[in-house]
Structures are given as C-alpha cells and as structure tokens.
Computed example of a mutant assay.
Amino acid sequence: MSNCKRCNKPLKTVKSIDIGYGPVCKKKQAAEDAEFERIQITLEEVVESGVAV
C-alpha cells in the first residue's frame, strides 16, 4: 500500500497510487502548483526590469 505524498494517508485506488495523491490532495496540489507557476518570473523579465542579478 502506498501513501499520499501530501497528507501521508494510505491510498486506496490504483489511480491514486499511480498519481501519488488522493483525490482531495490532488486538487489542493494542483492549485498550489498553479499558484507557484503564476508567481514565477523569467530571467528575461528580470533583465528587462533592470534589476541587478
């Protein structure tokens, strides 16, 4: 039996085990991943802003 990567509870379905997250944690993780991607900046944006690296 495998455990969820987020909450460490046992995973019950093959699909959840393959993904590594239960259905609730999968939604929460997807939201966190989307927010992380949204707030990232590229090197080009840093260069264009004139901020010293």
Rank of each mutant, 00 (worst) to 15 (best):
T42I: 09
P10V: 00
A52D: 15
E44G: 12
R6A: 14
L11M: 12
A34H: 10
I17W: 01
Q40E: 15
A52M: 12
I19L: 11
K15I: 03
S49H: 09
I19W: 02
V47A: 06
C25V: 03
N3P: 00
G20A: 03
A34T: 09
E45L: 06
S16T: 02
K15R: 12
A30Q: 10
D33Y: 08
N8F: 05
E37C: 06
K27V: 09
S49I: 06
C25Y: 03
V53Q: 12
D33A: 14
V46K: 15
S2R: 10
D18M: 06
K26Y: 11
E48M: 08
T13P: 03
M1A: 06
V46M: 15
E32L: 14
V51Y: 11
K9E: 11
I39D: 14
A31I: 11
C7D: 12
V46Q: 14
E48T: 08
G22T: 01
K28Q: 11
L11Y: 03
T13S: 09
I41Q: 13
G20C: 02
K15M: 02
D18E: 11
N3K: 13
N3M: 06
N3G: 05
M1N: 07
V24R: 14
E44F: 07
C4I: 04
E48C: 05
I41H: 13
D33C: 05
E35C: 04
T13N: 01
S49K: 10
E45C: 06
G20E: 05
V51K: 13
K5R: 14
C4L: 03
P10L: 00
Y21W: 05
R38M: 10
Q29V: 13
D18R: 10
C4M: 02
E48K: 15
I39S: 13
S2V: 04
I41W: 13
L43V: 11
Q40V: 13
E32I: 09
K12A: 01
E35M: 12
V47N: 08
P10H: 00
E32P: 01
K28T: 06
S49P: 07
G22I: 00
K26I: 00
E45Y: 08
E37I: 13
K28R: 12
S49V: 07
K27S: 12
L11Q: 02
R38N: 10
T42H: 10
V14Y: 04
K5S: 12
G50K: 08
K12E: 04
R38S: 10
V51Q: 12
M1L: 07
E45N: 08
I19E: 10
K12W: 04
E35W: 09
I17C: 02
A31N: 11
K15G: 03
P23F: 00
V53I: 15
K15W: 01
K27F: 04
I39C: 12
V24C: 04
S16L: 00
K9V: 06
G20M: 02
E44H: 10
V53F: 14
I17L: 05
K5V: 05
K15V: 05
C25A: 04
V53W: 13
G50M: 09
C7H: 11
V14A: 08
C4D: 03
K5C: 07
E48Q: 15
I19S: 07
A31G: 04
T13G: 01
